[in-house]
């Protein structure tokens, strides 16, 4: 998902067109990672509230997703499936079967969680009207993503400025009206449902074709061409030794990551290495407001109910 943001930033600047199959698969994996991220947010968040069982259910979903991505690119968590210009390779042959299993099994686990949690009095009382963030505050603090939508800000990059072909899929953007921890939970759950909807649509009309662009600026030519064709060989050498040469300039590109707007501000000096890349992490903006909204609550309040349901990721803060 973060790969998508960076690849998108480079592609947008260089004007590389992505083949439709790669686009669709990108959307598929992007939405899958959104689900996986929300699982990791909600699971331990609910554990902090004392609801341990949900972690098992949500991690069932995660393991299913891990299997898919491990098949496609070989690693589970720090994946690197996307390249500038497409994907590393096409999906393996058992992708359809596994993807169908994922789409079939995840809603079951999700339903289990919802049935355990949503009418649970302890949960509702511990999250209702806790950590309320008004619409104005959320905007001033720079909230984006599910936390902003829970406060009623209708902002989703996938709708506002579609990328990777999001305009072709039907999905709703859930909004909260109170901006408390309960709303944040509900928004996340609903987003998972919507993501499943998008994934189903992708799978139903997945176009055939290449999984990466044949633009010589960005993509390494296939192996047999490297052996037979001197131009392809030189291109291969150039790309490996120098990297992708990005034209000079500076630009800002953004996508909707699981927590909000993930922006990349890049300055390029025309060489194969970026001169400066500044990542705009969604959590950084959200985390700084905890100090203010935690005032007047009990410690388990800010810690369990709010921090986790806001989904603060340490890796994004500690850069």
């Amino acid at each position: 998902m973060n790969n998508l943001g960076y690849c998108h930033a480079i592609e947008e600047w260089m004007g590389i067109d992505i083949p439709p199959r790669a686009q669709a698969l990108r959307v598929f994996f992007n939405e899958m990672h959104r689900i996986l991220d929300h699982c990791v947010c909600l699971g331990p968040g609910l554990v902090d509230l004392g609801a341990l069982t949900n972690l098992w259910y949500l991690f069932n979903i995660r393991e299913l997703g891990y299997e898919l991505i491990e098949n496609a690119c070989g690693s589970r968590l720090t994946t690197s499936y996307l390249r500038v210009g497409g994907l590393t390779r096409d999906v393996p042959s058992d992708f359809y079967k596994k993807a169908k299993t994922f789409l079939k099994e995840s809603p079951k686990n999700l339903t289990d969680v919802r049935r355990l949690i949503e009418r649970n009095r302890i949960f509702v009382e511990r999250t209702r009207d806790i950590g309320v963030v008004s619409k104005e505050d959320a905007m001033a603090w720079g909230y984006t993503g599910p936390c902003a939508r829970a406060s009623g800000i209708n902002y989703d990059v996938r709708k506002v400025r579609p990328y990777s072909g999001y305009e072709n899929y039907e999905f709703d953007v859930p909004l909260g009206d109170r901006g408390d921890a309960h709303d944040r939970y509900m928004v996340r759950i609903e987003e998972m449902v919507q993501s499943l909807r998008i994934m189903q649509q992708v799978l139903d009309n997945l176009p055939e074709g290449a999984a990466s662009t044949d633009d010589p600026r960005a993509f390494i030519p296939p192996k047999h061409e490297t052996y037979d064709n001197i131009e392809a060989l030189m291109n291969h050498f150039k790309l490996i030794y120098e990297g992708i040469r990005v034209p000079k300039g500076d630009w800002y590109s953004f996508t909707e990551a699981a927590n909000g707007e993930l922006g990349f501000y890049c300055v390029s000096d025309g060489s194969g290495n970026p001169y400066r890349v500044k990542v705009r992490p969604p959590c950084f903006a959200i985390c700084q407001s905890i100090e203010k909204i935690a005032v007047g609550h009990m410690i388990p309040g800010p810690d369990g109910d709010r921090r986790k349901l806001m989904n603060i990721i340490a890796g994004e803060l500690d850069r």
């Binding site: 707007e261 400066r276 705009r280």
Partner: peptide, 11 residues
């Protein structure tokens, strides 16, 4: 402009 998305420095 209600949103301040980012502030960053460049050298």
């Amino acid at each position: 402009y209600g949103y301040l998305m980012d502030i960053c420095g460049v050298d």
